[in-house]
Design a protein around this nucleic acid. Structure first.
Lengths: 359, 359
DNA sequence: AGAAGAACGGTTAACGCTAACATGTGCGAA
DNA sequence: TTCGCACATGTTAGCGTTAACCGTTCTTCT
C-alpha cells in the first residue's frame, strides 16, 4: 500500500505503476512483472486478469526502474562517421527501438571530426565507458578501432560490413547475392551492356557487390567489358564523373548498376542532361534503398537493406553477449538478414535500335 | 559499505557507482551527486577532490537510477509523418541528445500509416501514456492532434512551425526573416528576376517564407511578377514541375528561390537537362540545409535551420513544464533560434546578356 | 565573546521494478 | 490416504541515485 503510506515524503502521484495494476488484478506486483515480461509460467486465467488490468489502466512499465532492477543497464555506443542522412536516420530509428525494447542506454557519438590517430584514443576511452559498441560502415572496417575495442574486451557488432570478421559479431545482408540478383534482373530484361559503378574501396561491401555483378554476367555468358566498370566512392559527385565516362563511350551501356543510391541518382542526372530518357533510353539501378532512391524522378529500382531492423538486432546481440558475463567463452555471431529487390521506375528493357528516340 | 555487506544477494560487480567515487574522495555519495549535477554549494576543495575521483575512476552516472530517483522519468513522445530522411535524422539526433542529457525516456512514433480520423484516436491514446510531446511539421499544424493533446493537459512543443500558436510552445526559426535575407542576398548579387517556389500550403512556414521573399522584393523596389511564383509541395517531383514552367517563360528568371532543398535540387536537375549551367546561367537557392543540399552538384546555397538543437531545446522546455506540476499556470513559450545563411556554389551574379553561353 | 545564521555535507528513505528465495497449491504415485 | 514434487504465486531485499531533512562547522555582527 505504498500509495496510502503516511511516512512517505516524496510523492509521484502521476503515472500508473506496477502496484496499481497489481491491486486492480488482485495479484502481487511480481506476477504483473512476470506477465508483462512474458517470463516464467503464469496461469492463463491470471495472465488474462493482469492483461485486462494493464489495458484498463494504460499501464506502461517504467524503463528506468526495470533496467535498474534487472541490473542490465548496458550502455551501448553507436559510433558514426560520414553521416549519410538516410543511412543514419535508419540506424538511429532501429537502435532507438532496440534500446527502448531492452531498456539499454544508448550513447551516440560522431567521430567525424577526429584528427589523425584520434580514433585509437577515442576507442580506448570508449571501451572504458560502455559495455557494447555498434559500428556501422565505414568504421566497421577500421582495424585500429576494432583492435582497441576487442582488446579491451568490449563486445562489438558491425553493421552492414561486407564480410564476416571472426573478431567481432556482425549483422549484414548478403551483398554478393543481392548484387547478383540485381544484375540478373537486368539481364532478364534483355540488357547485355550493363555498366557497374564501384563503391568506395575502403569498404568490403563494395568488393562483394562488384563480385556479385561479375558472377551474374559470367553465369549468363556475357563477356566482361572493363570499360563498363568505373570506380566510384559512394558520393553523388563521384557518380557524376563515372557516368560521364560511361555515357561517352563509343558503345555506351544500356543499363547502369550503381553501388549505391546516391551514385544512381547522379546517373539519372547525367542521363537527363544528355537528353536521355530514363528508363527508355537507359536503365539505372541503385543499392541500399535510402531516401535518395525515391527523392529523384523517376524513382530508382534498388536493393532494400533493412538498416533499422539490423540496428535493432545488433542491440539484441550485444545484450546477449554482455549479460552472459560469467562464461568466458567469447560469443561472435554472424547474422545475415534478408534483403529485397525493390522494383521502381528506372528500369525497362533496352530498345533494340540506337538510342535517343525522344518523344 | 554496500560493496562489502554480507547479506547482499544480488551483486553487480561491473560498473563504477557513485559509492565508489564517494569512498575514494572520502565524502558521502550525496556530495558526489551534488558535484556531478552542479547543484547547491559545495566547497571548492571538496569539489576538486570529487572531480578528481570521478576522473580517476572514469565514473559515469547511471541514467536509469538517477531518472528513477529524481522522479522525473518523463516519457516524451516524438511523433512524425512524412519522414524526410535528412530532417528526421537531425530531429532524432537532437532529441536523443536531449533525452540523454535529462534522462528522459524517449518514445518515437510513426503516424504515416494512419487512416482517416486515426490521428484523433492516436492522439487521445498518446495523451494517456506520455507526459510530453514533440511535434515536427506537418503534424504541428494539425488542429485535431493539438486539440486532443491540449485538452488532455499534455504539454506539447511544436518544432519548426511557421508561427507561434498560443496553445502550445514552439521552437522555430524566423522563417520570414530568413527568407527575406536569402532574397536580399540574391538582389545584392544583381538579380532582379527572382522566381519563388512555394512550399506545401498545409504548413504555415510556407506562407512565412513567401512573405519574406515578397518583402525583400518590395523594399528593393522590384515589382512582383506573378508568373515568377509557382506552387510547390516540398517534394522533388513538385519542384520539377514548377521549374519546368519557370524556365519555359518567354522571359525566364535569373535566379530561383525554392522553399526547401528538395525542390532546389529538382531545379538544378531541370536546369541541367536544359543545358543551363548552374550558377552561371541561373542561380538556385534552397531552404533547410538538409543533406539534399550537399548531395547534388553544385552544392546548394541554403538556410541552415538547426533542427538538432531545436529538438534538444524542445525537450528542455517540456521537462521544465512537466516538472512544475504544482503551479496550475500553463506555461507556453515561443523559442526562436538563430538561422544561418549558408553560401555554397549554386549562386552567382546574373550574366548581363542573354543566357546559354555554354563553354 | 556569544548568538544568529549561513554554508556545507551527511542521513534516510524512497523512485518502480525484478532476481532470488520462500511458500502455497494441486496432482499423481505409492 | 499420504507423501512428494512440479507448478504457480507471494515475499524480501536491493539495483544506483537523489529529494528532503538534519546536523555540523565557520562566519559575522552586536
Amino acid at each position: 500500500m505504498r500509495k496510502t503510506g503516511k511516512k512517505s515524503v516524496r510523492r509521484k502521484g502521476g503515472s500508473i505503476t506496477i502496484d496499481d495494476v497489481a491491486a486492480l488484478a488482485k495479484v502481487s506486483p511480481m506476477t504483473v512483472s512476470r506477465v508483462v515480461n512474458g517470463h516464467s509460467k503464469v496461469r492463463d486465467t491470471t495472465r488474462e486478469r493482469v492483461m485486462e488490468a494493464v489495458r484498463e489502466l494504460g499501464y506502461i512499465p517504467n524503463l528506468a526502474a526495470s533496467s535498474l532492477a534487472a541490473a542490465q543497464d548496458a550502455r551501448i555506443a553507436l559510433i558514426y562517421t560520414n553521416p549519410s542522412a538516410a543511412y543514419l536516420r535508419e540506424l538511429l530509428l532501429g537502435a532507438l527501438r532496440g534500446a527502448a525494447r531492452t531498456a539499454a542506454q544508448l550513447v551516440i557519438e560522431d567521430w567525424d571530426e577526429l584528427d589523425a590517430g584520434g580514433d585509437r584514443k577515442a576507442a580506448r576511452a570508449l571501451a572504458k565507458s560502455v559495455s557494447g559498441v555498434i559500428l556501422p560502415p565505414p568504421l566497421c572496417e577500421s582495424k585500429v578501432v576494432i583492435e582497441e575495442l576487442v582488446e579491451a574486451g568490449v563486445p562489438v557488432v558491425a553493421i552492414a560490413s561486407g564480410r564476416f570478421n571472426h573478431e567481432i559479431s556482425s549483422v549484414r545482408i548478403d551483398d554478393f547475392l543481392a548484387s547478383k540478383e540485381v544484375t540478373e534482373h537486368l539481364i532478364r530484361m534483355g540488357h547485355t551492356r550493363i555498366a557497374f559503378i564501384k563503391g568506395h574501396p575502403n569498404q568490403t561491401a563494395s568488393a562483394r557487390r562488384f563480385e556479385g555483378y561479375q558472377s551474374a554476367l559470367k553465369e549468363a555468358g556475357i563477356a566482361a567489358d572493363a570499360a563498363l566498370v568505373q570506380q566510384g566512392f559512394f558520393t553523388y559527385r563521384s557518380g557524376l564523373d563515372a557516368v560521364e565516362k560511361l555515357l561517352s563511350l563509343k558503345q555506351p551501356p544500356t543499363a547502369i548498376f550503381a553501388s549505391n543510391d546516391d551514385m544512381a541518382s547522379a546517373a539519372i542526372s547525367v542521363a537527363h542532361r544528355r537528353g536521355l530518357d530514363v528508363p527508355r533510353d537507359i536503365s539505372i539501378v541503385g543499392f541500399d534503398d535510402t531516401s535518395a532512391a525515391t527523392t529523384v524522378w523517376p524513382e530508382i529500382s534498388t536493393v532494400r537493406q533493412p538498416i533499422a531492423s539490423m540496428a535493432d538486432s545488433a542491440i539484441d546481440i550485444l545484450l546477449r553477449t554482455i549479460r552472459r558475463k560469467d562464461t568466458d567463452t567469447k560469443v561472435v555471431v554472424d547474422h545475415v538478414v534478408a534483403h529485397q529487390l525493390v522494383k521502381r521506375d528506372s528500369v525497362a528493357p533496352p530498345v533494340a535500335t540506337g538510342r535517343k528516340t525522344r518523344g
